[in-house]
Amino acid sequence: MEVRTIKVFTTVDNINLHTQVVDMSMTYGQQFGPTYLDGADVTKIKPHNSHEGKTFYVLPNDDTLRVEAFEYYHTTDPSFLGRYMSALNHTKKWKYPQVNGLTSIKWADNNCYLATALLTLQQIELKFNPPALQDAYYRARAGEAANFCALILAYCNKTVGELGDVRETMSYLFQHANLDSCKRVLNVVCKTCGQQQTTLKGVEAVMYMGTLSYEQFKKGVQIPCTCGKQATKYLVQQESPFVMMSAPPAQYELKHGTFTCASEYTGNYQCGHYKHITSKETLYCIDGALLTKSSEYKGPITDVFYKENSYTTTIK
């Protein structure tokens, strides 16, 4: 009895394709271990004539594949690729409408935090270190965002349907971005203890939790000093293409032309909904596939993004 075979390709990165001759009487799992086709788990399936010449994702289970996976995804987590594939199996079914010149995501599976993050990423200057993220990001900007969303979920250790947080998501993504040249110098002034300067680099240099107003941050924000008295913390120097200011959701007025974009969060910790506000020729609110415009805006804002380049204080 002759062994019926077909020729397929296996890959971990969709760049390096490895030619395989597979036995049609055995499952993919018996031949390769966990195997995925377009995100779908085909591990328990036997090869079919229609699979001839198709590319299958496999887990990096030998040295060659491990090197290829690390170079593309910059992670050695053995569960990463499987999590990416199972997320992709959902995100490829989502709709990605162009809204006001940006790629958004039609609401499904509690994905409003991903839509808000995706919209924000198209408006701030950011370059990702893992080629996987950078490639998928370019495709997302062009309207094909399924891979990018699935990668975000995998890097953030999230599953489809789980509630997510924009600030946490951005923080994970910033860790995989090139923020080497970003720098922030802060000064804390206390009447009792004097003053202390701190220099922050990388992710810490672009994120701040405690106030939404970048102007206020430049002037000074009140913080408790270690001595128990009130101290003032203010920005001395900022070198970065953008800054992200966050605070627990509270009524906040966004003035046209003073910011790049913002995240609105309605609801409580267990259950809520994100919308995205962007400042173009007027203010726009993007909620999944829905767009509304207004000249002014007041609502429960939790993150505001500002364009920056270089700032030095005039406070002496």
Rank of each mutant, 00 (worst) to 15 (best):
E2Q: 09
V3G: 11
V3T: 14
V3R: 13
R4Q: 14
T5H: 14
T5R: 14
V8L: 10
V8P: 05
T10H: 11
V12F: 08
I15V: 15
I15G: 14
N16F: 08
L17M: 12
H18L: 09
Q20I: 09
Q20W: 08
Q20A: 10
V21M: 14
M24V: 13
S25E: 15
M26W: 14
Y28T: 02
Y28N: 10
Y28S: 11
Q30M: 15
Q31D: 14
F32G: 02
F32W: 15
P34W: 15
P34T: 14
P34Q: 15
T35V: 15
Y36N: 01
Y36S: 05
L37T: 10
L37K: 12
L37V: 10
L37A: 12
L37D: 15
D38M: 12
D38Y: 10
D38W: 12
D38A: 11
A40T: 14
A40G: 13
A40D: 13
D41K: 08
D41Y: 05
V42C: 14
T43G: 14
K44S: 14
I45Y: 15
K46M: 15
P47Q: 06
H48A: 14
H48K: 14
H48D: 15
N49D: 13
N49K: 11
H51T: 04
H51W: 04
E52V: 12
E52P: 09
K54I: 13
T55G: 09
F56D: 05
F56R: 06
F56Y: 07
Y57T: 09
V58D: 08
V58R: 11
V58N: 06
V58S: 07
P60L: 04
P60I: 08
P60K: 08
D62Y: 10
T64Q: 14
L65N: 08
R66G: 12
E68Y: 08
F70I: 10
F70G: 11
F70E: 15
Y72E: 04
H74K: 11
T76E: 12
T76I: 11
D77R: 05
D77C: 11
P78N: 11
S79F: 14
R83T: 01
Y84D: 01
M85G: 08
S86P: 07
A87T: 10
A87Y: 02
A87F: 03
A87N: 11
H90T: 13
K93H: 14
K93F: 08
K93P: 10
W94Y: 06
W94I: 08
Y96E: 11
Y96G: 08
V99S: 02
V99M: 14
N100K: 15
G101L: 06
G101W: 05
T103P: 06
S104L: 06
S104Y: 10
S104M: 10
I105S: 07
I105H: 06
W107I: 00
A108Q: 13
A108P: 05
D109N: 14
D109F: 02
N110I: 09
N110R: 08
C112W: 02
Y113N: 05
L114M: 04
L114D: 00
T116M: 05
A117Y: 10
A117H: 02
A117V: 15
L118S: 03
L118V: 09
L119I: 01
L119Y: 03
T120C: 13
L121T: 04
L121N: 04
I124N: 04
I124D: 11
E125D: 15
E125Y: 07
K127V: 12
K127T: 09
K127H: 11
F128K: 01
F128V: 05
N129F: 02
P130R: 07
P130V: 09
A132M: 03
A132S: 08
L133M: 02
Q134A: 13
D135M: 09
A136K: 04
Y137Q: 00
Y137R: 03
Y137D: 04
Y138N: 15
Y138T: 14
R139Y: 09
R141C: 14
A142H: 14
A142S: 13
A142R: 13
G143F: 05
E144T: 05
A145Q: 11
A146I: 00
C149T: 11
C149V: 14
A150Q: 04
A150L: 06
I152P: 00
I152F: 15
L153N: 00
A154Q: 09
A154S: 11
A154M: 00
Y155R: 00
Y155I: 00
C156R: 05
N157T: 08
N157H: 10
N157S: 05
N157Q: 12
K158I: 00
T159I: 10
T159H: 11
V160W: 03
G161Q: 00
G161T: 01
E162D: 12
E162I: 02
L163D: 00
G164R: 03
D165M: 06
R167Q: 09
E168A: 05
E168I: 08
T169W: 03
M170I: 05
S171Y: 15
S171M: 14
S171I: 10
L173K: 05
F174W: 03
Q175P: 07
H176Y: 14
H176I: 03
A177L: 06
N178H: 10
N178Q: 13
L179P: 15
L179S: 08
L179Q: 04
D180P: 06
S181E: 13
S181A: 15
S181R: 13
C182V: 06
R184I: 08
R184C: 01
V185Y: 05
L186F: 14
N187H: 02
V188E: 07
V189W: 01
V189F: 08
C190K: 02
K191G: 12
K191E: 12
T192K: 11
T192Y: 09
G194Q: 02
Q195D: 15
Q195C: 14
Q197R: 12
T198N: 09
T198R: 11
T199H: 11
L200H: 15
K201L: 08
K201I: 08
K201Y: 14
G202V: 05
V203L: 04
V203N: 01
E204R: 10
E204H: 09
A205P: 04
V206M: 06
M207P: 00
Y208S: 10
M209I: 10
M209Y: 15
M209E: 07
T211C: 14
T211Q: 06
L212G: 07
S213I: 07
Y214V: 06
E215K: 08
E215A: 09
E215T: 01
Q216F: 01
G220E: 01
V221D: 02
Q222F: 08
P224W: 10
P224C: 08
T226A: 15
T226L: 10
T226H: 15
C227G: 01
G228S: 03
G228R: 03
K229I: 06
Q230P: 12
Q230T: 13
Q230E: 13
Q230D: 08
Q230N: 09
K233P: 05
L235A: 02
L235K: 04
V236E: 00
V236S: 03
Q237R: 13
Q237A: 12
S240V: 02
P241C: 06
F242T: 01
V243A: 02
V243W: 04
V243D: 02
V243Y: 01
M244V: 09
M245S: 01
M245L: 07
S246N: 00
A247C: 07
P248A: 14
P248W: 06
P248D: 01
A250S: 09
A250V: 14
Q251T: 14
Q251Y: 14
Y252I: 09
Y252P: 06
Y252V: 09
E253Q: 00
H256Y: 12
H256Q: 13
T258L: 03
T258F: 02
F259N: 09
F259C: 03
A262N: 05
A262Q: 00
A262C: 01
A262W: 04
S263L: 03
S263G: 01
E264G: 08
Y265G: 01
Y265T: 00
Y265N: 03
G267S: 02
G267V: 02
N268V: 09
N268I: 01
N268F: 04
Y269I: 10
Y269Q: 08
Q270G: 03
H273P: 02
H273K: 00
Y274E: 01
K275W: 00
K275I: 04
H276L: 02
H276K: 07
I277E: 02
T278Q: 10
T278E: 08
S279M: 02
K280W: 05
E281Q: 02
T282V: 12
T282A: 12
L283N: 06
L283P: 01
L283I: 15
I286A: 00
I286E: 00
I286T: 11
D287Q: 04
G288Y: 03
A289K: 04
L290R: 12
L290I: 13
L291W: 15
K293N: 10
K293S: 13
S295I: 07
K298I: 15
K298A: 14
P300V: 08
T302K: 01
D303L: 04
V304H: 01
K307R: 12
E308L: 04
N309Q: 12
S310K: 06
S310E: 15
Y311S: 07
Y311E: 09
T312H: 13
T313K: 15
T314A: 11
I315P: 15
I315T: 15
I315R: 15
K316I: 15
K316N: 15
